[in-house]
Amino acid sequence: MIPGYTSPSMQAAQRQAIPKLSLKHISKNFHTKTGKFNAVEDINLEVKAGEFICIVGPSGCGKTTVLNIIAGLEKPDGGDALVDGTPIKGPGTDRLVIFQDLALFPWLTVSKNVEFGLRLAGVSKKERQERAMHFLKMVHLTRFSNSCIHELSGGMKQRVALARALAINPDILLMDEPFAALDAQTRDILHEELQEIWVATKKTIIFVTHNVREAACLGDRVLVFATHPGRIKQQFQLMCTRPRHIEDPGLMVYAKAILAELKAEVEKVAKEELDYDWRTVTKKPVLRLDDRNLGSGT
């Protein structure tokens, strides 16, 4: 625990017992040409305010679907999704998604992108600019405030997306494999900064990744999803101190356990999808230093 810092989750627990977010028996079907497809089934989850949740799972197991349901962009077919005890009725700026492909607007400059949600909320121009500047400073991008989006590197775009979401001051940040396309060094830096920002802003974060070590590095809790249908297979509570670094030896034992769980799942998917002569012997899971990419994610 960082000295002098009481986690928002502790404060919330003192205030009330209602979880920030709670999913009860959530299920979601998609109707495709080949019929009904059960994307997620019976998802149960309670998230405390200020908690940092990581979700790992094979691609296609419904991680994005769950984020979309929380964001109110997708309606569940069954179950209840509650924020602060009230049912989610639709999209709301208290829950912001950082999309896998970022969805920055190329017709706006960096600072105008960050101001976007504020403009919709009717915030005055002066305050908009101040707040955009504040959050651009937080992600160390003030020098590029007037740049066009296409002029930025991948890591810088991530920072803009983060600033754009933070500027709207959501309670919950939903991040969908945000760092998947970045190089390891840039990702390291962003891991560090994301933890700092999380501590400073006390957001509740739900972070989807297919990188087990990233999940172990960032999460208070890591959920491993199973597929067909998507559901929560296993949860890991991580007690490591923060700030954490992805190479911390203390994280390895968690990462290994998560990986073992995930690997069984990935191989199950492969067996279902690939020909029967695909190697059936499950080797002992090994953590390589390069990042394991378990599935492309969609």
Partner: peptide, 12 residues
């Protein structure tokens, strides 16, 4: 792109 529409909806 539907993604931009989603992002827009998400931001209000």
């Amino acid at each position: 792109p539907p993604l931009w529409l989603r992002a827009g909806r998400n931001m209000g």
